[in-house]
Design a protein around this nucleic acid. Structure first.
Lengths: 299, 299
DNA sequence: TATGATTGTTTCCAATTAGAAACGATGGCG
DNA sequence: CGCCATCGTTTCTAATTGGAAACAATCATA
């Protein structure tokens, strides 16, 4: 229809072909096919002159409208494709979002004034497609799926306790000794009860016990700060507490065997929209392999 | 764009494929190509669920409008293609138009109430395409062209004269004798001066002379009626005069060697519009190989 | 009145697109 | 928890469409 409109407006097949950068044989054949499909002759053509039939004139009216609408629609889309613009719908885990995403949004949005963000924080596994999300931040080991996962930062978990607790119960030197401590742990996590470490002489597993299991990191941290016990928490959670001396890191020679990472997860890579790309790039730059929350900590 | 709109509205590729009676692989590939061309992902697809991206939602809005406009345009055209409707632009020679086309229009239009006629009468050779005409009635031998010519009726020319003239000058029995008569003839016609006949013993040519040459049949006829001389005129012109005895036919055993025909001429045959078809058929039926204007005359 | 230039169409071949079937992934259902 | 049905994608082949050149028809020009 766009081609037909162009032919009418150019006044010739050859002119339309030139305008649309296709061959005149393609124009001729497309118009013929269109006429056959509609069952009407649209253009009367003598070798050197074109004229519209009654049907052609009516159809051209419609084609012109179609061509305009189509061009407008493509312009709208191209605008969204040409730069970071529009609304970015983000999902993230509650605690990470509050601590590390929230504080950077103002700066990010300042860089991209045509972008707005709709951030949803929750700890359940959401379906990006179903919820119409552009991107989710996820921490841990990822189940493989059709989505793209981009690593934003490492996520180390460390064993921590309050100085008061250590003064009272002593400081464990080897993972096995944790079995005799009050261990605060995540509930509803696969191996929440068993802590695994990799150290100088291999891997060790410890079955922990303690007065509290909870499915929220903030509660866990608060309990540790109150000297209720020993907790295994990500550094993005307790980095400031360690630097401030409110918590102390135990077993510094042992690394959590389940070390994982912070990921950005988003659908497909082909035709990734600029808004998603700039957000992912921004986060990867801001966090990185040595994120600020690990400053002063060694691994 | 129509396909994309359909996918969004059906909520699945498979559903859209079914609606449009194409394969789902075609749908999948077309959407992918569209996304590549626009440089944006329009739909996020997990195996069992589709959701629109921001760009997809904006584009769908436009596609819906495009699809509606396109459907409306096709409906309009299909209506014109589905039956005799609209305006029929006709061209015909002046005298034939007045005598034989005009009188049948009322009857014709009564059969096709959704049709209107724009009839132009003139004797110059018009360019159908340039003038935007649907059909022309032409009499004589046709130059071949890209147009279709449908024979509507034979056109016989006969030699006639008024009884008064014959009483005074006598009745020629053989073509050669016309050379001694006052011959009234068409001017500006190739062989207007030379009359050719086919008779019992072959073809004869007669070089005529006379007091009047004119490029209009009505004037010629009036002159003959007035007894000014002998004229060679088509029967559709002088049929009534012959039957009424106002004119008499000479040389009944000799036929005009240039016998020609009444034709309907129109562009191309492929996708001939119903309005043209019914008009041509109507005229062919009304005139035919033994047209009413030849009633009572023998050839 | 002939010639050259330009138009839309056709032809032949290459490139693109559609279709059938297989595939991998996911949700519903027992 | 496993099976089946269904979804979108991929693969391979067949059909369709596009392009360059040849063609037929017309107009402008000399």
């Amino acid at each position: 229809m766009v081609l037909f409109a162009r032919v009418v407006e150019a006044g010739s097949f050859t002119g339309a072909a030139r305008d649309l950068a296709i061959s005149k044989s393609a124009v001729s054949k497309q118009i013929s096919r269109l006429e056959d499909r509609l069952g009407v002759r649209l253009l009367n053509r003598s070798t050197r002159r074109l004229s519209l039939t009654e049907a052609g004139a009516a159809f051209h009216e419609g084609c012109r409208r179609v061509a305009n609408e189509a061009a407008a629609a493509e312009r709208t889309v191209s605008r969204l494709a040409s730069g970071p613009r529009g609304e970015l719908r983000v999902n993230a885990p509650m605690s990470f979002g509050i601590r590390h995403l929230g504080p950077c949004l103002a700066d990010f949005l300042q860089h991209y004034p045509e972008l707005t963000i709709d951030l949803t924080l929750n700890d359940r596994q959401v379906d990006l497609v179903e919820e119409g999300l552009d991107i989710a931040v996820r921490i841990g080991v990822l189940a493989d799926s059709s989505l793209i996962a981009k690593r934003l930062a490492p996520s180390h978990r460390v064993v921590v306790a309050a100085p008061a607790y250590l003064a009272e119960r002593g400081c464990p030197e080897r993972p096995e000794q944790l079995a005799d401590h009050a261990c605060l742990r995540y509930s509803y996590q696969a191996a929440g009860r068993e802590w695994r470490f990799r150290g100088p002489d291999g891997e060790r597993r410890v079955r922990t016990k303690g007065p509290l299991a909870v499915n929220n990191g903030d509660v866990l941290r608060a309990a540790a700060l109150d000297g209720l016990g020993v907790a295994l928490l990500p550094t993005f959670f307790v980095g400031p507490d360690l630097r401030a001396g409110r918590l102390e890191r135990l077993l510094p020679d042992w690394r959590d065997a389940q070390d994982s990472a912070v990921h950005a997860v988003y659908p497909a890579n082909r035709n990734l929209s600029p808004k998603v790309r700039v957000f992912v790039d921004y986060l990867a730059e801001r966090f990185g392999e040595a994120p600020y929350w690990d400053d002063g900590l060694a691994f």
